[in-house]
Each structure stands twice: as structure tokens, then as C-alpha cells.
């Protein structure tokens, strides 16, 4: 207990928590992305993947673990934002970066807020299939609960929603480009020797995720609008 209170009660400890949960989320994002690549293959492949995934032993436990990583990461960063604002109650009239600012580091808060909204929407949209209402999906009308592929296809017909998804893809990429390497620094796993390499990996990771999810979103938009046959 003393360890936990030392960690949660300390600025360095809080960095640890953000770093560890951040890395967990990175792992989640990567796996989620790889899984979603099945969408590019087709309906059967994706539904198989979803089925197998859910059948994994301890799936609920893992899901809960990732969910708590998200919750802790979000709660802690919000707390830090307020603490950091309090540490500088009066802002500068002119403040410039001394030249090391990256897109990722400059926008963590903005991309973070977007991602929080995105996450809530994404869960309601796909996981819980509440928004938009799925009642008009043919299977639903027929009285059968639509499968996840149907939910996705149905949602991705909507251009506005797709753009929102693309926004999410870009934000998650940018957020990761700073967050991934930053986690290593926070956890003290940093040496001048491999830090540049880590920064490169971090940036590549961000770009991969941003482009990858965008491609999937665009692909699904096209597929969903080509024909209603799959529905």
C-alpha cells in the first residue's frame, strides 16, 4: 500500500502510471489495428477473427485490464492537466518553443481530448451499437441482432462519421508519436544511445497507425456505399 501511495502521491510516480498505461494502450491500439486489417479481406474473415478473439480464454479479463488502462490513463492525465495549469496560474503573453517542439508533444492535450470523445463514440457506435440507431439495419428489422460487420458497414455509409473516424486515426497517430517514446523516458528506460532510434520508432508507429486506420475507414466507406448487397 505504501508503494501505491508513494506512486500515486508523487509527480514521478504519476508519470510512471501515465507511461505504463500508455504503453498498454499502445499495445491495444496495435492489436486492434492488426485485427481490423481483416476488414480489408472481407466480411467472413473479419467475423471469424471476431469470433476467435472473443473465444480466447480470459478474454473478458484482458478486456477489463485494457479498459482500466484507458480509464486510469485518462483520469490521471486529466488530473495532471489541472495540476499543470495550477503550476502556472498566469500565462506568458508571448511563449515560443525553443525549437524542439514536435507535432506530437505540442498537441497531446488536443489529440487527447479528441481521442476521449472518439473513444466514447466508438464504443457506443460499434461495441454497444447504440449510436446511430441500428434499428433500420435489415437484419434488425427482421428481428435478428445484427453482427458487428453489419454494424460497421451500416455506420460507415455516413461520410461525416467516416471523417470523424479519420480524425481519430490521425489523432491517435500523433498522440502515439509523442506518447510511445515519452513513456520510455518517464519510466527511466532512456539512454542517449538509443533514444533517437526510439523517437524514430515512435514516429513510424504513429504514422503506421494513422495511415492504416485511415485506409481501413476509407475502404469501409467505399465498400459500404458500393452496394447494399452485403447487408
Amino acid at each position: 500500500m505504501t508503494i501505491l501511495s508513494s506512486v500515486f502521491g508523487s509527480s514521478v510516480g504519476k508519470k510512471f502510471i501515465v507511461g505504463i498505461t500508455g504503453l498498454a494502450i499502445c499495445l491495444f491500439v496495435l492489436m486492434h489495428f492488426l485485427g481490423n486489417l481483416n476488414l480489408l479481406i472481407g466480411k467472413e474473415a473479419f467475423l471469424d477473427y471476431a469470433k476467435n478473439l472473443h473465444a480466447l480464454p480470459g478474454f473478458v479479463a484482458i478486456e477489463l485490464l485494457f479498459a482500466s488502462a484507458f480509464l486510469v490513463h485518462i483520469a490521471m492525465t486529466i488530473k495532471l492537466i489541472f495540476e499543470n495549469k495550477a503550476a502556472r496560474p498566469v500565462d506568458y503573453a508571448v511563449k515560443k518553443s525553443a525549437g524542439v517542439k514536435t507535432l506530437g508533444s505540442a498537441t497531446t492535450m488536443i489529440t487527447g481530448i479528441y481521442l476521449l470523445l472518439f473513444l466514447v463514440f466508438h464504443l457506443l457506435n460499434i461495441k454497444f451499437a447504440i449510436i446511430p440507431s441500428i434499428d433500420t439495419i435489415p437484419t434488425a428489422i427482421a428481428g435478428v441482432t445484427p453482427n458487428v460487420y453489419e454494424v460497421i458497414s451500416y455506420s460507415f455509409k455516413n461520410l461525416g462519421l467516416v471523417l470523424f473516424y479519420i480524425g481519430g486515426a490521425v489523432c491517435v497517430g500523433i498522440h502515439i508519436s509523442h506518447g510511445f517514446q515519452s513513456s520510455f523516458q518517464s519510466l527511466g528506460l532512456n539512454s542517449p544511445k538509443y533514444m533517437p532510434l526510439l523517437r524514430t520508432i515512435s514516429n513510424l508507429f504513429g504514422v503506421l497507425v494513422a495511415i492504416g486506420y485511415t485506409v481501413i475507414s476509407v475502404f469501409m466507406f467505399i465498400v459500404a456505399n458500393m452496394k447494399g448487397a452485403t447487408l
Binding site: S10, S11, L80, E83, N84, A86, A87, A98, G99, S186
Partner: peptide
């Protein structure tokens, strides 16, 4: 670290402005 926190400094989020 405890003293630093008690004095009201903010948290590091690895912006690297300090180093620069």
C-alpha cells in the same frame, strides 16, 4: 521529489523545452 511536489511545480510531460 517530495519537496519539489509540495512546492507546487508542475509535472513533466517530456516536451524537452527545458533541455533546449
Amino acid at each position: 521529489i517530495q519537496t519539489m511536489d509540495d512546492l507546487g511545480f508542475g509535472n513533466c510531460s517530456n516536451h524537452r523545452e527545458c533541455e533546449a
